[in-house]
Structure formats: C-alpha cells, structure tokens
Write a protein that binds this DNA or RNA. Structure first.
Lengths: 208, 208
DNA sequence: GTATAACATGAGTTATTGCTCGTGTTTAGA
DNA sequence: TCTAAACACGAGCAATAACTCATGTTATAC
C-alpha cells in the first residue's frame, strides 16, 4: 500500500508521465490490470521501459498514480452544491449522468472499480469508492435529514454497489441502463428512508 | 472459448480431478484468477503438475471445468417450484438465502462473477450469469404476468446486477447486507412493473 | 496372462514478467 | 559558462509463467 511514484519536475517529463498513465489506462481497460505488463505500457506509450521506471518504481506505484489522478479529477466532475428545492430525482439523474461522463473520459474507471473485489488491489481502488460514497452521503444529508450518520453511510454504500453492479452488466443497452439505474436508486432510497425512519419523517424529497 | 478438459475415466483419477478443482477454487477466491498459476494449484492439491495437465490441457480448460461444475450444482441449489400463493417477498428472500448458501459452499463463486467484467474470461463466466438470469425470468413470469419476455429479461438482468454489485461490497456487515439486497430488489421490481405496465395490471405480488 | 489404454511423475523448455543499471543527454540555477 | 540534478535509453537479469515429454505404474478387457 506504500507505493508512491516520482513526480516529474520538468515540463518535458510531465508530458511523458501523463502519457504513460494514459496508456496504462487504455490497456488496463482493454485487457485487465493483471494481464497488462509494464513493458506493454511503455511500448504503447512509445517510451522506453527505463523511463517508465524513472517515474514509477513499480507497477503498483503506477496503479496508485492513476487512481490518484482519477480521484483528484473526480472532485470537479460531480455537481458541487445541492439545492434542496430541486427534486431528489433530478439530482440523482444528474449524478448518474456525471458518472457516465466521467467513465467515458477516464478509460480505466470501470475496470478499476472491478478490482475492488480483487484481493491485490482493493486497498488502492477503495480510495475511489470512498470519494464517491462520501459525496453521496453528503447528498443524502441534504434531502433526508431524518437519517443519522450510520444510516446515510449504509444507504450511500448500497447505492454505490447498485451503480457499480449495474454498470458492469453486459447485454443491456447503455441508454436503457441509465434509466434502470435511476429507477433502482430512487425506489431503494425511498424504501430505505421509509423503513429506517418508521414514517418518512423529514423526507424532503417530494414523495411520501 | 473452445477449452474442454479430459474427464477422468477411473474412480482414482476422479478424486484427483475434483481435488484439483477444489484447490483451484480456493486459490482463485483468495488471490484472483490471473495471479494463481497452474503450478500453485497443483502444489496446493499435492498433485504433480504433469497430472494437472493430464486432465486440463490448459489453464483456461480448468476454469471452464470449474464453471461447468458450478453451473451443474446450481440447478439443485435454488428452490425448484414457484407457488403464486406464496408472497413475492418471501420468494425473493428464499432466493437470496439460497445464493448466500451456494456462495458459502463454492469458494470461487463470487470471484468468478467478478470476472464477468474481465475481458479474458467473460465468455466463460457468462454461463453462470445466464443460468441465474433465466431462473429469475421464470420466477418473474409467475408473479408478474403482465410483463412480456423482453421486460422480464431486462428486470431479471438488473436484479442480477444488483445482487452482484451488493455482494461485492466491502465495509458492510453480511447480515445487514442481505436485508438491503432484499429491500433493493423488492422496491425495484415494484417500481419496474408499475412503470412498464402503466398501472400494475396483473400484478399478483400482493402490493399494488 | 497379457495387451492396451488410462493414469502418474517431475525435470526441463520456452516465453514473458517486473525490474536494474551503466551510460549518455537536457535542463535549470549560479 | 559551468555544474549538479533531472531525465533518457535499452540491453539484459533473475524469477516465474504455462506447458511438454520421456519414462514409469495401474487398471481394464479379453
């Protein structure tokens, strides 16, 4: 877990650094993390293997750097503020759209999340999960003030699991998928709040 | 995808065959499929590497055999008949329990499902997904007669995705997890039926 | 009893992996 | 202009991967 990289200190090398991360992302997405070798990554980026190890002292450190990049860029990718006046359904829709867009812009995003379940890399990928879950917790706090911290966390975590599970489905049209994800989330959150607050008290979502 | 194995023809070798599959399952579950080598599997089973290749001409064929074993054992693991008189909620609960039990009895079940998203193995693991989805389709047909084939398939697939996504969650108590899975599924199916049938016509689940 | 197919065994082959290291080139600061 | 740090480069190394094969040993059929 202590796998840090050597950040480039010149403009020239910063570009090569980014290029390596981009190539890694593309190859990880296409073939899976374990299958892609550092030699492949270097070759895909047209950068000699020695230079790769200049920046990334190990394959793990490359993974860590990629995840670091993704988590930093996540901050700007999601809607920043929640207006309780906007219906909950709309906010959920916006969040799903933002996630889909982020996934499109970040080749390895989906493949990295898959590795939450692969023992070697859980610890690294977990960071991305935490960023998303924390964000959703915050959102739930705005709309469902009756939930306590533990309840918000549990609900957010389950929501994350739902999105992850459905995103990885094959054999379902992408457009239809977004609709179904929204349906599941909305239905679940309402069911959850109703169950946990024994009457949906302080439910500001518009639906009772 | 054409990776078949050499089934043993004597009792003695049948035990060694099963032993190899069991060792593979345990190691796959613990470390991930890509990371575990055929040499490791043979050593864990205390069977020389040459004998492993007697039965399994490739690592892929071993995976195929393991999945074949799992899919065959799945048939007996799930409740066989659906009585429309039994409430839908109860049936869902029973199915989730059966899945949890099956997972406990089959070390690599969860890890295999994870590899639905890993390009190299999708085709193999997909077989297990199909068995489960087809089963759920059948179940939905009993309770929601207003749904057509495509709708049943879509609903079943999403249900599968939900269960898979939530099963892979870390950081949530196993007992709580089962409750949340049930909540999500029930809430979703009702929302889905209401949306697709424009009024929940022929909804025999007890809830409108 | 004997022939044949099925199985058992593990040292060894070839390819690939993550990674090193010696040597040469740029860059930035004084 | 000079110097030290940062970077560029790629042949090559040790470890490990998947897999083979020559040489035995058991079981089964007649």
């Amino acid at each position: 877990m202590t796998a840090s990289w050597n950040a480039p200190k010149q403009e020239r090398s910063r570009r090569r650094f980014d290029q390596l991360l981009e190539s890694a992302a593309v190859l990880f997405a296409k073939h899976g993390i374990d299958v892609v070798s550092t030699n492949h990554i270097a070759e895909h980026a047209s950068i000699p293997i020695g230079s790769l190890y200049q920046f990334f002292p190990s394959k793990e450190s490359l993974l860590a750097a990629l995840i670091d990049q993704y988590t930093r860029e996540m901050a700007g990718a999601f809607p920043a503020a929640f207006d309780p006046a906007v219906p909950f359904e709309i906010v959920v829709d916006a969040l799903i759209d933002a996630l889909i867009e982020f996934d499109a812009q970040h080749a390895a995003f989906g493949q990295l999340l898959v590795h939450l379940a692969s023992p070697r890399y859980t610890a690294y990928v977990r960071i991305m999960q935490d960023v998303i879950v924390t964000y959703v917790e915050l959102m739930l706090g705005v709309y469902f003030t009756a939930l306590n911290d533990e309840q918000r966390r549990r609900c957010a975590l389950v929501g994350f699991g739902v999105v992850k599970g459905l995103s990885e489905l094959t054999g379902l049209d992408r457009a239809l998928l977004a609709t179904e994800i929204t349906t599941v989330l909305i239905a679940y959150v309402h069911a959850f709040v109703a169950r946990e607050t024994t009457a949906g008290v302080n439910d500001k979502s518009g639906k009772q």
